[in-house]
Design a protein around this nucleic acid. Structure first.
Length: 390
RNA sequence: GGGGGAGUUCCCGAGUGGCCAAAGGGGACCGGCUGUAAACCGGUUGGCACCGCCUUCGGAGGUUCGAAUCCUCCCUCCCCCA
């Protein structure tokens, strides 16, 4: 075990507790069982998830065993970490579907052959009431209420359910079940990870090392990346989408993205160049070199030069009546929520036909046939008008 | 078991009988500007072929010319005391 190897495993880590324990475990020379738990509450993995996943992959490359816990059982409760409200409970079907795609997407980062995927319903589902009681005896209410989330919610007179209180214990029991040596998580997981130590000890096991990583901010540069906040970049999203979203993050967040998503130091240079470099590398990582080049070209063309993309989908419409009524047509072409939305777009000068802004709701059919219609800055369609009798 | 309080448009949150499709903020969308899908500035933001009509303020009834606002019952949630 070299100093450099230890450095690689702990790079970007915020806490590695207890101090010196990881080095001690590594020195024994046997592969460690490194645990990362994920809640299948959303179907897609985003860049925020890739931070601990990337760290897990790093352990894997160093010869250790990655144990990916899919929290299909715990998800029924919802992790209260960082939450100010109870989470909505998902149906079993949704959770199952999410769990599958989630694990699948995780293999974009992990080595499939060397990853142990476990569903925690495997052991949590086996616990009878006596087992649950045994688990609850490992801690006290006061200790559970120590954590910030709970303390804050209690102070704000917001509800905390008993099942949420049990969450850290269940997560800790996962560590018992798989005999974890190390557990990874975001800084918001610190309490849960440490609670896991106590639970393991109570079950006669050597407590795990808790390794926490920074929380990645979302594209808004402010809040943590999450699906529900709509500020996320999914690893399975199309290349153009990823590239554009990455370019939209605030400059202040760029360096963090380099370190946490790529595990590299940011380039030196102009902010724009640094961000372009980031977007290229990330898209390349998840979609390959060629897709990255195409995505960048698309960005340059559509966003920077305000031109239409190379390929524009075609929409067909049958000419009916004297003239075309745009709000209704826009609704179907661009999947708008209502025709009122279409009206607003026209009113606000957000609609261009063949490059010219259109301000009337009615236009001659002739002006639409073969024309490129643009809604806002990024939505395009090529129109084909069919004659009414055809 | 007793007492108090809350449920409003995508979210938070004003609104206690007509001036309410409902303040303000967030988000989203459009426009301007820009290296950017950032920041900033301006506008829009229930639906409908829309100068008018329809639906919305936890649910169901009721009072009234007129209700998000008043009454009754119900549902959900929170706090305090025990």
């Amino acid at each position: 075990m070299t100093v450099a190897a230890l450095e690689a495993l702990t790079r970007n880590a915020v806490d590695v507790l207890p101090h010196g324990e990881l080095a001690r475990k590594l020195e024994r020379g046997r592969p460690l069982r490194v645990k990362l738990g994920i809640d299948p509450t959303a179907p897609d993995i985003h860049l925020g998830h890739t931070v601990p996943l990337g760290k897990l992959a790093a352990f894997q490359r160093a010869g250790h065993t990655a144990v990916l816990i899919v929290g299909d059982y715990t998800a029924r409760i919802g992790d209260p970490s960082g939450r100010s409200k109870e989470r909505p409970v998902l149906s079993t079907e949704e959770l199952d579907a999410n769990a599958r795609t989630f694990a699948e997407q995780a293999f974009r980062i992990l080595d499939r052959e060397r990853t142990e995927v476990r569903y925690n319903s495997e052991w949590l589902g086996q616990l009878d009431f006596a087992g649950v009681l045994g688990l609850t005896r490992t801690t006290t209410v006061a200790r559970l209420l120590e954590r910030d989330d709970f303390a804050r919610r209690l102070a704000a007179e917001e509800p905390i359910s008993i099942s949420e209180l049990l969450y850290p214990l269940m997560q800790g029991y996962d560590s018992v079940a798989i005999e974890a040596d190390v557990e990874l998580g975001g800084t918001d997981q610190l309490y849960n990870l440490l609670c896991g130590r106590d639970v393991m000890e109570a079950y006669g096991l050597e407590p795990q090392v808790a390794l926490t990583l920074p929380i990645l901010v979302g594209t808004d540069g402010r809040d943590r990346m999450s699906k529900s906040k709509g500020n996320y970049i999914g690893v399975a999203e199309p290349p153009e989408e990823q590239f554009g979203k990455l370019m939209s993050i605030p400059d202040t967040a760029t360096a963090d993205y380099w370190r946490l998503c790529l595990d590299e130091e940011p380039l030196a240079g102009e902010p724009m160049e640094v961000k372009l470099g980031l977007a290229r590398r990330i898209v390349r990582r998840y979609h390959g070199e060629e897709a990255a080049v195409v995505a960048e070209a698309h960005f340059t063309r559509v966003v920077r030069r305000h031109e239409a993309p190379e390929e524009v989908r075609e929409v067909r419409v049958r000419a009916e009546g004297e003239s075309a009524w745009l709000p209704g047509l826009l609704r179907t072409w661009f999947d708008l929520p209502s025709t009122s939305e279409g009206r607003r777009l026209v009113e606000q000068g957000g609609i261009r036909v063949a490059g010219a802004v259109v301000r009337d709701e009615r236009v001659p059919w002739g002006s639409l046939d073969g024309a490129l219609v643009q809604a806002g800055k990024r939505r395009f369609a090529r129109v084909v008008v069919e004659s009414p009798s055809a």
